[in-house]
Computed example of a mutant assay.
Amino acid sequence: MRAAVLLLAALLTPIPAAAQTPAPPAPASAPAPEPVPVYGFEVVRVYPHDPAAFTQGLVFRDGELLESTGRYPSTVRRVRLEDGVVLQRRELDEDYFGEGLTAVGDRVLTLTWKGGKGFIWNPVTLEPEGEFAYAGEGWGLTHDATRLILSDGTAALRFLDPTTLVETGQVPVTLQGRPVSRINELEWIEGEVFANLWQTDYILRINPATGAITGIIDLTELMPDRSGLDPTDAVLNGIAWDPVGRRLFVTGKNWPKLFEIRLTGPR
Rank of each mutant, 00 (worst) to 15 (best):
L222C: 12
D95H: 10
D242S: 01
P25Q: 11
N184M: 07
W121D: 14
K114I: 10
P16D: 11
G245V: 04
D93Q: 02
P33I: 04
L229Q: 08
Q88F: 00
V76F: 12
T163N: 13
L58N: 00
R61I: 00
F194G: 03
V193L: 10
T168Q: 08
L66D: 00
L150C: 05
T174E: 12
A212N: 15
P48S: 11
W139N: 02
I203A: 00
A17K: 07
G245L: 00
E185K: 04
F54D: 04
P31N: 06
I206P: 04
V250P: 09
F259D: 07
I216R: 00
G84D: 10
W241Q: 00
V36E: 02
L248S: 03
L111R: 08
D95Q: 11
R267C: 04
D106W: 02
L175V: 15
L236G: 03
P24Q: 04
E34T: 13
E99Q: 04
P51C: 11
W241T: 00
G265I: 08
G115R: 07
V76Q: 01
I213Y: 12
G57T: 04
G211C: 09
E82G: 14
V104E: 15
I149F: 09
P24W: 02
A30S: 14
A4D: 00
E187S: 15
S68Y: 09
S227I: 10
R182N: 11
T75L: 09
E82M: 14
Y134D: 13
T214Y: 05
M223R: 11
D62F: 03
G105Y: 05
D161C: 14
V43G: 03
T232H: 05
A103Y: 01
Q56G: 00
L150Q: 15
A3C: 13
D225V: 05
E129Y: 01
T168E: 13
P37N: 15
W121V: 15
F132C: 14
P14A: 06
